[in-house]
């Protein structure tokens, strides 16, 4: 009986969690076809000396394992996501 109660409680908890997500997803609105905003999946980089970027332009800067990288916010606006990796750490740059 105790096991049955636990099973029912667990099932109800899972259903509740699923419902919450389903409820949230019902508010999702597709605006553009998926893929129309092209994420960057194989990022390329230049050095600071070679970069053509205005001093007052904004960047998202990161430092991982001592390596610094900068992503122009204006480029991020166009691509939304940069899928990147430094060392063993894969990460997504989003702002």
């Amino acid at each position: 009986m105790k096991n049955m109660c636990l099973f029912l409680a667990a099932t109800m908890a899972i259903m509740s969690a699923s419902w919450s997500g389903a409820d949230e997803f019902s508010k999702y609105q597709q605006i553009l076809p998926r893929g129309q905003i092209a994420a960057v999946t194989k990022p390329h980089y230049v050095t600071a000396k070679r970069a053509v970027i205005a001093g007052d332009s904004y960047v998202l800067g990161i430092v991982v394992e001592g390596q610094a990288r900068a992503y122009s916010l204006n480029l991020l606006n166009n691509h939304e996501v940069v899928n990147d990796q430094i060392g063993d750490l894969p990460f997504a740059a989003v702002w």
């Binding site: 999702y28 609105q29 605006i31 553009l32 998926r34 129309q36 905003i37 994420a39 899928n83």
Partner: peptide
């Protein structure tokens, strides 16, 4: 990751 093309 990529943009889904949608909003919530």
């Amino acid at each position: 990751f990529e943009a889904s093309g949608g909003l919530i």
